[in-house]
């Protein structure tokens, strides 16, 4: 057992969430207007569609020190742009294997479908994901590689 008293602060992961404008971002808004809570370390970036998210953005987030990245889109079949979330699904499946190859735990990324009416689901997905990433601990694999500022 680690001595808890010597720890400065409990680890809180930094999480980047990409949300599509039509479903998930609205779902996040609904979670807010329903006053549901989820941890403050989730920060949302609005994109028109989940298919706008280049896997590069995910890697960039890990490189810059994010501990987890979650992508939220409309449910399959409900994409505002008809097929966007299918592309997301395939691209992210490929990214998972790439992350695995690089030694980054696949559990640090996730793709979830949250509709505009699912505020409660949005909050529970975020709570669950934060818990999952907290258990994994800090993302050291890629942040160690990045060029530290001032060095």
């Amino acid at each position: 057992m680690q001595d808890v008293s010597t720890e400065k602060k409990e680890f809180t992961p930094n999480i980047v969430a990409f949300c599509c404008n039509w479903c998930s971002y609205a779902g996040a808004d609904l979670a807010g207007s329903s006053r549901l809570t989820y941890p403050a370390n989730v920060k949302i970036i609005r994109v028109p569609c989940s298919c706008r998210v280049n896997p590069m953005f995910v890697l960039k987030a890990f490189q810059r020190g994010a501990d987890g990245v979650i992508l939220c889109g409309c449910h399959p079949g409900d994409c505002h742009y008809v097929t966007g979330n299918y592309y997301t699904r395939r691209r992210m499946a490929l990214l998972y294997s790439f992350l695995n190859y690089m030694g980054i735990e696949k559990e640090r990324t996730r793709v979830e479908w949250v509709s505009a009416a699912e505020g409660a689901r949005f909050a529970s997905v975020m709570n669950d994901f934060v818990k999952q990433v907290t258990e994994l601990g800090e993302n050291k694999r890629l942040t160690d590689l990045r060029v530290k500022e001032g060095e």
Binding site: P48, C51, P55, M56, F57, K60, A61, G84, Y87
Partner: peptide, 28 residues
Amino acid sequence: CGACTVTCPSGAMDLKGFSSKQIMSEVE
């Protein structure tokens, strides 16, 4: 929607208002 921007192998396609640079800067 931006599907084309991610598909483009040479990175030539971008989306006005949600450009790759903009999203990258948000991530940072």
